[in-house]
Design a protein around this nucleic acid. Sequence first.
DNA 1: AACTCGGGGGA
DNA 2: TCCCCAGAGTT
Length: 356
Amino acid sequence: MNNNHQFFSSQLLSWNRDSNQRTMPWKGEKDPYKIWLSEIMLQQTRVEQGRAYYEAFTSKYPTVFDLAAAPDEEVFRLWQGLGYYARCKNMLAAARSIVHDYNGIFPNDYHTITTLKGIGSYTAAAIASFAFNLPYAVLDGNVYRVLARFFGIDTPIDTTEGKKIFSETAQNLLPVNKPAVYNQAIMDFGAVVCKPQQPNCLECPLATKCIAFLTNQVNKLPLKSKKLTVKNRYFFYIVAIYNQQVLIQKRPGKDIWQNLHEFIPVESPEILPAQTILEQSREIVGTVVNGSFTLSPLFKQKLTHQTIHAQFIRLALKSRIQAPQGFQWVPLNSLDNYAFPKIILDYLQNNQLQLL
DNA sequence: AACTCGGGGGA
DNA sequence: TCCCCAGAGTT
């Protein structure tokens, strides 16, 4: 086994030195603040999707002081569309903690790094190794896949046992004298060669000792124990408009899209007529709303665990009503200042509310 | 230990 | 359609 470990690490580093063409804006970055930003943004997010956001954030907030001082709403607006919005909230909390608790200096030991909001074992290892060259092996989707295939590990990666096995294996493989280069190399290798689908096994420098390749299991590994269930949800949004203003709220509760804005929501287990939705909305609005309405087409947004169907009922009020608890009247031409979920952005793009 | 959190891209 | 992506926090 030790021979295989030695083979794995040395072949990987050789591949990285001779054949790794992958470039990214944050690669080789030594500023822990910028490394941290990139790692938060890339959690469960493809590099290509996060790239533009990284540029926007480092441009607008060059230092942790700039980010910590920024208004919440401005930051959420900049994060709009990237998803997993708790990351944004935690990122702000961490930035403010770094400024207030650590004098703006990023903590340089693994344990302290993990105490920051939104930083788990992966992100802490990434920051510790890339910024401070500390010997902590990263364990992300790439690493799970590469290790599962090369060592033929069929323990599901989404179990406690699996996490323990892969974590220990990853740490054992890490050359303690070059953690930064090695961590970057194994993730690049997983993204470029040992890809989820159609990996380049014929050009792979590890193939001669890769258990999955030798036993024809490449497309089976890594294993997961859980199967995904997706449920349908139907959101009806009352877009209540009066005098070029519209009612919105910051989405409350523990559901999806925390901290993003929305119109008056009426959720239903099935599609209902607009008239029925308007009647139900009176409980939320607290009064009988009057006016003519226009029904939008049905919009659809696929999330990991649910498919959202949304229909918008644009309601031209005859008189101004008091904003319900939690809601506010905002000018239609100021909606750009607020962060909205993708499905509402789709509606806004198609409906030109400002022309009303 | 199981759930939940977005949105996009590739086959 | 289904799976996966530089995971983390909550229940």
